[in-house]
Nucleic acid binder design. Structure first.
Length: 418
RNA sequence: GGAGACUUCGCCUAGUCUGGUCUAUGGCGCCGCACUGCUAAUGCGGUUGAGGUUAACCGCCUCUCCCGGGUUCGAAUCCCGGAGUCUCCGCCA
């Protein structure tokens, strides 16, 4: 949710942000109107309520006719208060709905436009010179690392079994990611992957992403699509110390229905219903958020360097930002058989947007409580295996394990077990 | 799955049976001031959070006793639903 004070003071800023995203400006005016209506309703209710309380104080001492008259008046008042209270309730709901409809304010400097209007910040590393490279699935099957067919038999499409050296490689990658995270001062976390509706809604995933989410009807719980959800909700409703940013690294399984992606990335493990992910998550003061964003990006790039992948960094255009994000950087690794870069990491600065909904605050130097800023960023997913397999493949179908990964994988070359 | 106890303004706690004087008691902690030439001790004052009014402040008002409803002129207190914590029973890969 955006800051209502900012909206009142500078509505044009929000309108400009909506234009940059290519989204409707009318939601801004709807929100302004809803805010105005709510304040009027609140004032009407409070006036009546104050009068009711005044009269209520006289009640215990009143006797006889005086008491009867008082009772008659307060009875009327009570009815009026009830009506006014209901009006406030309705106005609150309307305000909340209008509030949720407005995405975060785009940060200054974000390129305007849609998906293809990103700006490439840099390209790093050398693309491998491969003669007739095999794609990750062919390599995965050759190595006994990925079993899509049996996954489909047991669970359906987009549910791979990771097997043999594939399982070892994934575990090694994740272990490296967690060690890197700890080295950078992040607190490792293994969160629950089933969460209550509040956590899901608080992180904004029941809005545009609702159809992407698995839900357990019998228990009214949701399967998270990223550990961002439990990590963000971790401090919900709390006032936390933020003299230093609070940083976490969550390792969790993620579940996505991939409802809108039929026919997209159907081959291999690029896009699956269930995968593990190491996700970084920071809480910090709003004024530190931009620096924290760079920090998360730097950790991601450090990790990409450790696994020796060629990649580029893009500054995502406004129209391609999630509704919570004010700015987003993606690291995309080179995928030889696709001849293009594919997203491996994504780090978003959500400023106070997410924390306002989740009510995460800190105490400022002057003793006042303020809404925190939140940021998130990817540190490892199975999609990284796609890039690692393809970029480090050898002519014989084996795969070189990057040096930094070797201790965690337990070997320097991937070959079929046995 | 069943039964019971509990949840109060940072922490602990009084109040709930018997609705109004609860503008929620006391202790601890924290902040400020005074005093003692340091520290400590002592005294005084302050200390939940949110919203509205205001250019802002002061002040005033409203809401907030786990959450949501209800009863009532009036709810921390009574009723219903939910969440969480603990205890016991049952079941269990």
């Amino acid at each position: 949710m955006i800051d209502l004070r900012l909206l009142r003071d500078e509505p044009d800023l929000i309108r400009a942000s909506q234009r940059a995203r290519g989204e409707s400006e009318s939601v801004v005016d709807d929100l302004l109107a809803a805010d105005e209506r709510r304040r009027l309703a609140v004032q009407a209710f409070e006036t009546l309520r104050a009068e009711q309380k005044q009269l209520g104080k006289l009640m215990p001492k009143a006797v006889g006719d005086e008491k009867a008259a008082l009772l008659a008046r307060t009875r009327d008042l009570a009815a009026g208060v009830k009506v006014a209270e209901a009006a406030v309730h309705d106005a609150d709901q309307a305000l909340r709905a209008a509030h949720l409809a407005v995405p975060n304010v785009v940060a200054p400097g974000v390129p305007a436009g849609g998906e293809d209007d990103y700006v490439v910040l840099r390209e790093v590393g050398d693309k491998p010179d491969l003669d007739g490279p095999r794609d990750h699935l062919e390599l995965g099957e050759l190595l006994g690392a990925i079993d899509m067919e049996r996954g489909a038999k047991v669970s359906g499409s987009r549910f791979p079994f990771m097997t043999g050296v594939g399982a070892l490689l994934q575990l090694g990658l994740f272990q490296l990611a967690m060690q890197e995270a700890v080295a950078h001062g992040l607190i490792p976390v293994i969160p629950p992957v089933l969460v209550k509706p509040e956590a899901m809604e608080g992180t904004g995933f029941l809005g545009a992403h609702a159809s992407e989410v698995y839900r357990l009807e019998a228990d009214d719980l949701y399967l998270v699509g990223t550990s961002e959800v439990p990590l963000a909700a971790y401090h919900s409703g709390e006032i936390i110390p933020l003299d230093e940013p609070l940083r976490y690294a969550g390792w969790s399984t993620c579940f996505r229905r991939e409802a809108g992606s039929y026919g997209k990335d159907t081959r291999g493990i690029i896009r699956v219903h269930q995968f593990d992910k190491v996700e970084m998550f920071s809480f910090c003061r709003p004024e530190d958020a931009a620096a924290e964003h760079q920090r998360l990006l730097a950790i991601e790039e450090g990790m990409l360097a450790k696994v020796e992948l060629p990649y580029r960094v893009i500054d995502t255009a406004a129209g391609d930002l999630g509704s919570s994000a004010a700015r987003k950087y993606d690291c995309e690794a080179w995928v030889p058989t696709q001849g293009r870069y594919r997203e491996l990491t994504s780090t978003s600065n959500c400023t106070t947007f997410q924390a306002r909904r989740l009510n995460v605050r800190y105490r400022d130097g002057d003793g006042r409580t303020r809404t925190a800023a939140t940021l998130n960023g990817t540190l490892a997913t199975p999609r990284w295996l796609v890039a690692i397999l393809e970029n480090h493949q050898q002519p014989d179908g084996s795969v070189r394990v990057p040096k930094a990964l070797q201790p965690f994988v337990g070997r320097d070359v991937l070959e079929p077990l046995r």
